[in-house]
Design a protein around this nucleic acid. Sequence first.
DNA 1: AGTGTAACTGAAATCGATTTCAGTAGAGGG
DNA 2: CCCTCTACTGAAATCGATTTCAGTTACACT
Lengths: 329, 329
Amino acid sequence: MATIKEVAAKTGLSPTTVSRVINNHPYVDDSKRKKVLQAMQELGYVPNSSARRLRGQKTNTIAVIISRIVNPFFSHLVDAMERIAGEKGYQLILCDSRLNKDRELAHLELLKAKQVDGIILASLQNDWEAIEPFTKYGPVICCNEYDIKAQMPVIRCDQQYGGYIGTKHLIEKGHTKIAYAGGADRIQLTLDRKTGFLKALKEHGLTLPEEWMFPSFYGIEDGKNIFQRIYAMEDRPTAIFAGGDEVAAGIIQEAKRFHCRVPDELAVVGFDNQPIADLIDPGITTIEQPMKLMGTRAMEMMVDMIKNKKKVTYKKEILPLQLVVRQST
Amino acid sequence: MATIKEVAAKTGLSPTTVSRVINNHPYVDDSKRKKVLQAMQELGYVPNSSARRLRGQKTNTIAVIISRIVNPFFSHLVDAMERIAGEKGYQLILCDSRLNKDRELAHLELLKAKQVDGIILASLQNDWEAIEPFTKYGPVICCNEYDIKAQMPVIRCDQQYGGYIGTKHLIEKGHTKIAYAGGADRIQLTLDRKTGFLKALKEHGLTLPEEWMFPSFYGIEDGKNIFQRIYAMEDRPTAIFAGGDEVAAGIIQEAKRFHCRVPDELAVVGFDNQPIADLIDPGITTIEQPMKLMGTRAMEMMVDMIKNKKKVTYKKEILPLQLVVRQST
DNA sequence: AGTGTAACTGAAATCGATTTCAGTAGAGGG
DNA sequence: CCCTCTACTGAAATCGATTTCAGTTACACT
């Protein structure tokens, strides 16, 4: 592969001048500029990225940390981010923590090693104390998940409100025995969602038996599993609020297999408004999260922070969340 | 951020020795090794990735080019790749061509600029003539899509066989009026699939009216669109072979809306065996593609090619494909 | 004592670009 | 004629690591 020196040699000019042509600097004679461009063309020269990174202290690369790319929620989020990154001339490194704290920390090391210019945390396994030390090496922002203690920019949805309106909807439909399937309490997002859920219950004097609480369930199989456990209960809930459309879909799917009618015998509310929510029969009543908007805004903010090194004072954007009613309730 | 020089200064040793400690080279006195490790710890030193890349002519980064990350087929493929890459110490750059030739070429430039050690093409928009010039800058392999003329390693499925068994299945179910929804003919994968489809038709003396042919349709909305067009026909097909489960799901969904019974009035075969194939009602009969296996094998091969620079002689792996029968046929 | 070798160390070159700085040529003004 | 300023150019320093090569000990073996 040709280097800048070879281009210089071929044209009889110095590497400095070639560099100026590459970077569109002024003060290069037009005839020489043309000669350089032609030589670059002939040699198939492309500037070496590693050298530029080293000299310029800039990688034009951004890492996004998610917990599971096969979750449509994340793939839509990443899709939106990739678009903006591309437009702005950045590469995207995909880091999947698979819900593992250590893997998340290992990915954050990319910032220390200056392998990326910034990191977007779309999933958050560690708490602020563990993340904070990394923030002095470059911009780190949260998108989707968050930690209330965190002193970093955040783009997220009002999860508590989401949990509240979903539950309120079930209560208005006449349900009093409502189960809940969410994520782990150590995750702020799921904790807030649950808080909203409990708030709605409390407002109507309802309570939640320990047994109707299903923490840490994520995929379709988990949903099936949950249904079986509910079905085996003596005192069954008549509705369930699931922490994701995949779990909701699994519950509905398994309910059908056991000839348990949805929503008559068991109403189901999901979360995210993923494509399957509209495909499955009955359609899933769910809380719509604006994933495209979140991804877009997060990437725009990241690029902005990288370009204007001014320490963006800790900024927070909370996006709207809304109920989409279908046939599962 | 601390540099190797600072670590050297702090310990009173040379950068050379520090480097040896970092890279676990032999011939470093144990007491000095300890001193260096401690100094690195205290300074929070992490070797600068750009400098290592430049000096070592190695990026430990691999790019994967896909056409649409929100397609579950690709997200599963990428998921498998990311796992293996992580295990082997590589980062993954996600490049979405969005079916655009130029964007694909732009992403291939990463190899020229030595911004990645290799590229996995999971989607292929350009033909071999356009790709070939890049192969001299580093390993490029195809995974999933392919071009028969291509002289590069390929991990793929036998698409023609897939098209054949899916169609054969419909014929065995008694259908003689079978429509086809695939991708563009310029894509070898979809062309082969169609060839298999046509082969099965021909073996049974069946023909395909131009009108029953739907090229270039990909998502759920496209599926709905296709159903409407079929429904409006005077002479309707009784079955359709769709090029993906999303399209199949869209067709089924819309059929239900129009009270057209599946499979009685319209049988549907999909492709991929994505999670939705099993979720939707009726379940989609589909051709299962081993996405995990394909992604895994492709990444393993890529890492192998990077490590053993020996020009791997053009290698081909064709993975099995099988019919999964559900209720849509 | 002399030689060979294993164990260890650091100065300097290197990777390939960009940037700083010093300098030249020619135009224009006083 | 001298001075200044603009337009242009290149030598050398720089980014931060790794590698080469030369050298120093210390010890074992004849």
